[in-house]
């Protein structure tokens, strides 16, 4: 096959991506450097004000808060997800595909619906309160819904299947004889896990963490539904700039910072994967 042939196969799709992804994203990048017009329009003069505004304590605080919530969600999701992936990888090999399938299945049902399910559980008149009453807990229930905790639970719940998948991949590829060799050389189960298995599966952990963090920090549905507008995350802030505050340049600047954070993390993840690739070579 000559190198010319693939070009005409790729052209339609690449043209589409250029028109409806690359150009719009470049547009946003440009927009971030324009001034906001008096009545919400865009004034085409160059300014760095929008980017500066991102670092204004008010908005920087929202960034930090979003990062804290995203980081906490990612951490919890990785701990639960890794444990689940390990348990699946330890199951008899003929059962693993079906376990994995059911672990991932919820991921492919509607995101809004999954989030809504937690409203039903956490609501003041919801199932958890009902259950507590039924068990004889009569005191005032703490508020469950519309809290940061609810947002974290929602994010963990929504992205857990992906973390399981990401952690399972390196665990399942691990040659069991490597763990046995470590045991044979005198290491305990725990030491073997800590010194051998864990380092070799870092890429999966990194992928899972970065994925949950990136999707959480820019999330707008979960804070809106489970946070109940009690506090803002970056996603909500961007949303507001475009649909209510009508400050597109500032919204664009926020998006750019979001993208920058995401790219930085993806680079770190690639780095983590490459560092562990020495371990990978041993696998094969």
């Amino acid at each position: 096959m000559k190198d010319r042939k693939p070009l005409y196969l790729m052209t339609p799709a690449l043209a589409w991506l250029t028109a409806f992804m690359v150009i719009p994203c470049l547009l946003i990048l440009a927009l971030a450097f324009f001034r906001r017009g008096l009545y919400g329009g865009i004034e085409y003069t160059f300014t760095l004000e929008n980017l500066a505004l991102v670092f204004d304590p008010l908005y920087a605080g929202i960034f930090l808060k979003s990062a804290a919530i995203a980081g906490l969600s990612a951490l919890i999701a990785v701990i639960i997800g890794y444990a689940a992936a390990f348990a699946i990888a330890a199951a008899p090999s003929r059962r693993q595909p079906i376990l994995l399938f059911f672990a991932v299945l919820p991921f492919w049902s509607n995101y809004l619906v999954r989030t809504y399910a937690w409203i039903v559980l956490l609501n003041r008149e919801g199932l958890i309160t009902g259950l507590a009453r039924w068990l004889g807990y009569d005191a005032e229930m703490p508020r469950l819904l519309y809290t940061e905790g609810a947002v974290v639970v929602g994010l963990v719940y929504n992205y857990l299947p992906f973390v399981i998948l990401a952690c399972y991949a390196p665990l399942s590829r691990l040659n069991p004889e490597i763990a046995e060799a470590s045991r044979d050389l005198g290491a305990s189960s725990w030491t073997t896990f800590r010194r051998v298995v864990l380092p070799m599966t870092v890429p999966g952990i990194a992928t899972g963490f970065v994925f949950v963090f990136v999707l959480s920090i820019g999330n707008f549905v979960t804070p809106a539904l489970l946070g109940g507008g009690q506090f803002q995350m970056i996603g909500n802030l961007i949303y507001a700039q475009f649909l209510t505050a009508n400050d597109w340049p500032f919204g664009a600047a926020l998006s750019m910072v979001l993208i920058a954070i995401m790219m930085g993390l993806l680079t770190l993840q690639t780095f983590a994967t490459e560092r562990a690739s020495g371990a990978k070579r041993e696998e094969s």
């Binding site: 719009p24 994203c25 820019g218 707008f220 961007i238 597109w248 995401m262």
Partner: peptide, 12 residues
């Protein structure tokens, strides 16, 4: 992130 693609397309 969906939100970024969404606003980019909206602006576009």
């Amino acid at each position: 992130p969906d939100i970024v693609l969404a606003i980019a397309l909206l602006s576009f």
